[in-house]
């Protein structure tokens, strides 16, 4: 991809790989369409995740072999998928009971903007003439235990996606726990954005210049501070 700027930070695959490291074994996970789907390729050996797709399948497997797909077995992106041994099908109200009822451990979504208070905007630019379409995003962010965003740190035109306040219409208020970008892993804390990890070769100042809100440095890691990642994050998530 030509950006006119030297390639710096993580590639999309590397972002997905970094995020996958943080998902505990046995988690029930809903991956959004686009970059979030890449996460499934990088789950570390020895961990089993169960993928939920909101159109009615728990135990989603990879894409079918060519010619073996079924138009009645698709994911939320309407692409043909497979079902693993041990999968189950269910109707839409049950599917969203899993989501809204807090039974899904983690959701990974893309974003247009994330605000320092955890607000997410990812469904509409609010432009007149745009066709509004929300799908399941508002239910997912309202109900899933942890919500991670995976996104480029800035838009294609260089605008920060991590902002003071979202200017686009919200998907949910105060719903994001953590953001994985091409430059850094950033927690949303009570005090705002806090960098917990920088991509190799990326300086804190470089990230700060490209972030539309104050950016805190992570405190030195205190062992046991976060049961899930030992990363110094806000530890809102359940212990493993």
């Amino acid at each position: 991809m030509t950006t006119g700027e030297e390639q710096i930070g993580w590639s999309r695959d590397e972002m997905a790989r970094r995020l996958a490291l943080d998902i505990p074994n046995g988690s029930y996970v809903n991956l959004g369409i686009g970059i979030p789907e890449l996460v499934a390729k990088f789950v570390p050996a020895g961990r089993t995740l169960i993928y939920h797709t909101e159109n009615g399948l728990l135990g989603m497997g990879p894409s079918p072999a060519p010619g073996e797909g079924d138009p009645e077995l698709i994911n939320a992106g309407k692409r043909q998928v497979t079902a693993i041994a041990g999968a189950s099908y269910f109707h839409h109200a049950d599917s969203f009971a899993m989501i809204r009822g807090g039974h899904i451990d983690l959701c990974v979504l893309g974003a247009m903007q994330v605000a320092q208070n955890g607000d997410l905007a990812n469904w509409s630019t609010g432009e007149p003439g745009a066709i509004p379409a929300v799908g399941g995003a508002m239910d997912l962010v309202a109900g899933v235990k942890s919500v991670y965003v995976i996104t480029q740190h800035c838009t294609k035109t260089g605008e920060p996606k991590l902002v003071d306040r979202c200017t686009y219409p919200l998907t949910g208020r105060g719903v994001i726990n953590r953001v994985y970008t091409d430059l850094a892993v950033v927690d949303v804390t009570r005090d705002g954005f806090r960098v917990v990890e920088l991509a190799p070769g990326v300086e804190f100042e470089y990230v700060r210049e490209r972030t539309g809100a104050p950016l805190l440095r992570s405190a030195p890691l205190a062992t046991g501070q976060c049961h899930e990642h030992a990363c110094g994050c806000d530890a809102k998530r359940r212990p493993v």
Binding site: H92, S95, F96, G135, M138, D139, A142, G143
Partner: peptide, 24 residues
Amino acid sequence: PQGTLAERIRAGGAGIPAFFTPAA
């Protein structure tokens, strides 16, 4: 929202005139 749509339909069929949801 998709989950709200599903629950509105389920509720309608179950004789529930209204409900509260955190979505949106």
